[in-house]
Simulated assay, not measured.
Amino acid sequence: MAEIAGHILVVGASSGIGRAVAERFAEERSVTAVARRTDRLADLAAAGIATIAVDVTDLAAIGGVLQAAVADRGPLTGLVYCAGVQLIKPMRSLGVEEVERLYKTNLVAPTLFAAAFGNARISTRDAVFCAVSSVAAQRPEPAIVPYAASKAGLDALIRGLARELAPRRAVAVAPGWLDTEMTQAHARLYGDAFKAELEKRSPAGVATVTSVVDAIVFLMSPQARHVTGEILRVDGGATL
């Protein structure tokens, strides 16, 4: 059997970017997929990917998740945090539990994953922590203010990790709008007219999940070994 080139933990691997990242890295590395949807994890397990079922808002369980992954497949050479929650609501309509879950998922959980990731027993010295942010972090809009604020915090986390966890690297991608299950749940907002306007505003074309995954693979590769603390925008130029 060929030697496995590293061990990648993908958090939020049940759908969208997370699932695509797990499947891409599984082509050449050992992968552990983390998600709360056991039915989706079963599909990944059938493809030879190790799986751990957990809701990332169960913050006390995060340390155990990393320990279990390392015990099963060895120290991490990379961690990709793809879990995310989006709320599209006016501020006046937000409930306490909604806001709490959003910030736990988008900012508190990745902070705790990163804290454990920096431990020498968990990751190698050249390991890479990568998170999925959003262009909303720099361009907050009405009805997604808490989401944008959580992603802005995530960007600050990445920049700080790059300094504190060195020589490990910390990077992020900031996609624009993507056609995923998350956005498909708001089909009324993201209809044909929205997509046509987005296409007009995107000089390089509307970004896709595949293009975001390509960016993640590059940022975590040796070719990006001197890139750290950066948040790479992947939106086809729509926010220029």
Results as ranks from 00 to 15, higher is better:
3 E>V: 12
4 I>F: 12
7 H>L: 01
7 H>Y: 03
10 V>L: 12
13 A>I: 02
14 S>A: 06
14 S>W: 01
15 S>E: 05
16 G>N: 03
17 I>W: 01
17 I>M: 02
17 I>C: 03
21 V>H: 03
22 A>C: 10
23 E>V: 10
24 R>G: 08
28 E>F: 15
32 T>Y: 07
34 V>N: 05
34 V>K: 11
34 V>I: 15
36 R>F: 10
38 T>D: 06
40 R>C: 02
40 R>P: 01
41 L>F: 07
42 A>N: 00
43 D>H: 13
45 A>Q: 06
49 I>Q: 00
49 I>T: 04
51 T>I: 14
54 V>E: 05
64 G>W: 00
64 G>V: 04
64 G>M: 00
65 V>Y: 03
69 A>K: 09
69 A>V: 14
69 A>H: 07
71 A>I: 11
72 D>C: 06
72 D>E: 14
73 R>Y: 04
74 G>I: 04
76 L>H: 09
80 V>Q: 01
82 C>V: 06
83 A>Y: 07
86 Q>S: 05
89 K>T: 00
91 M>H: 08
95 G>P: 12
96 V>Q: 13
96 V>D: 08
97 E>I: 09
97 E>V: 14
98 E>W: 04
99 V>E: 09
99 V>S: 10
99 V>L: 15
103 Y>N: 06
107 L>T: 09
109 A>H: 05
110 P>V: 12
111 T>K: 03
112 L>P: 03
113 F>L: 11
114 A>W: 10
116 A>H: 15
118 G>M: 07
121 R>I: 06
123 S>V: 12
123 S>H: 11
124 T>L: 12
125 R>C: 13
131 A>T: 07
132 V>H: 03
133 S>V: 12
137 A>M: 08
137 A>S: 14
141 E>I: 14
141 E>N: 14
141 E>G: 14
142 P>E: 00
144 I>V: 11
147 Y>G: 05
148 A>K: 11
153 G>E: 00
157 L>H: 07
157 L>I: 07
158 I>L: 06
159 R>L: 05
159 R>S: 07
161 L>R: 07
162 A>I: 13
163 R>S: 12
164 E>M: 14
165 L>G: 00
166 A>T: 07
168 R>V: 08
172 A>M: 03
173 V>A: 10
174 A>F: 11
175 P>V: 06
178 L>A: 04
179 D>W: 03
183 T>S: 13
190 Y>W: 14
190 Y>N: 02
192 D>R: 11
194 F>H: 05
194 F>N: 06
194 F>E: 03
197 E>K: 15
200 K>A: 08
201 R>I: 02
202 S>T: 11
202 S>M: 08
204 A>I: 08
205 G>F: 13
210 T>R: 15
214 D>K: 06
214 D>I: 06
214 D>W: 06
216 I>D: 00
216 I>C: 09
217 V>A: 15
217 V>H: 08
217 V>G: 14
218 F>L: 12
218 F>M: 02
219 L>G: 09
219 L>C: 04
223 Q>K: 15
223 Q>N: 09
229 G>W: 11
229 G>K: 11
230 E>Q: 15
230 E>C: 07
231 I>K: 00
231 I>V: 14
235 D>F: 02
240 L>M: 15
